[in-house]
Design a protein around this nucleic acid. Structure first.
Lengths: 200, 200
DNA sequence: GACAAATACGAACGTTCGTGCTTTTTTAGT
DNA sequence: ACTAAAAAAGCACGAACGTTCGTATTTGTC
């Protein structure tokens, strides 16, 4: 790897952590440069605009996410084990960044803006939601789900569990948020085993 | 009402809408001043710092939220009707602001910061989650819920439905997000309630 | 209508923002 | 070791940021 490429990677790694805390628009060239002991212009040279930096932060984050969450998850046997692995990987990923999942931070920043950065984020999020939905559909096909729902419904509901956990845990500092998230996940999967499903 | 007070209200009303799109830290004195045809210094005088402005935006938003969502909701008969009214009011509130619920935007900005603005938001959010939880507890007491869960669990799950709807609808522009949110709400209330299930 | 108080303005402060240039230093290939 | 290319630094720019200050204008009270 080039010298330039390795510095670029170092910049992106740090920028991703920083963006998880302060958001993509909270990133500043000056702050990044001083954190990494670079000059503003030296750092700037690697990206030719701040927008390009933001976009590469998202792409860098996506690579890490795929490596840490998606691939290990898909390596699990299809059905509930795979869904659970994806969910647990997601939790661990959120906890691995100082400000939590960088995409959550980016999402609420960009949902009212237009432009290529937003387009990139939307594309990445659609892919992730797609992974969740198809993994659920396979679990249904395996017969692991007693009362199947629309896979898109499952994906949105699971995303909600994730976001609510993020909110209750990070903002409200609620120590029970994580166990509630797991309980909600179990309920979402497993209206199958026992009381919850018998009702309908 | 004083002249000064009425200008302050006008500023806060506009600032709340703006903050729902660009966030609390995206607010700038200059932008607000030019939007409202005021001078920067004239506007600034009403708040003595930007932090005070942000805080008052949250408080102004909370007053509106209470007036538009909480009070009409609590006016409904306790139990499922009240829960449903709170939920529907919440949806309408989010759609009433150009960037969606201002607290959602603020939450992901402030969850990693410290200071009085964050403290204000946390307090407001705790109150709202409390309203949801106690309203659910009353529905349980009324016998409206067949398989009751911990009210805090319900509140977090409901918050998740809301956040996922916000995400899928605002970021991903998914036209089915709203109906999925309603379906999730029905499922949350009424896994065992025949009427709710049939209405899907 | 006079007059004090409240409200708004205009200009300027120092800082930081993103982004260009030009020059110096470091890297990589021979 | 020499050299061309790559990378980083240095410096400067215009604009926007939050904030302050002194002055003008508008408001409410008698």
């Amino acid at each position: 790897m080039n010298k330039g490429e390795s510095t670029r990677q170092a910049i992106l790694a740090h920028a991703t952590e920083l963006a998880s805390q302060v958001g993509l628009s909270g990133l500043t060239i000056g702050r990044l440069a001083s954190d990494l002991d670079l000059s503003k212009s030296g750092l700037f040279r690697h990206f030719r605009s701040k927008e390009a930096l933001q976009q590469q932060v998202l792409e860098h984050g996506a690579e890490t996410f795929i490596q840490q969450v998606v691939r290990p998850g898909l390596a699990q046997p299809r059905g509930i084990p795979r869904l659970r692995a994806l969910f647990e990987g997601w939790l661990a990923w959120d906890q691995g960044l100082p400000g939590g999942c960088v995409f959550v931070a980016a999402a609420s920043e960009l949902d009212d803006r237009d432009g290529p950065v937003r387009d990139t984020l939307v594309e990445l999020q659609r892919q992730w939601v797609g992974v969740l939905a198809t993994s659920y559909a396979k679990a249904v096909a395996e017969g692991h789900i007693a009362d199947p729902v629309d896979p898109e419904q499952f994906a949105q509901d699971l995303y909600g569990i994730m976001l609510a956990w993020h909110h209750h845990s990070r903002l409200l500092h609620d120590p029970d948020a994580e166990s509630r998230a797991r309980r909600a996940f179990d309920a979402l999967l497993g209206a199958t085993d026992g009381a919850a499903s018998l009702s309908i």
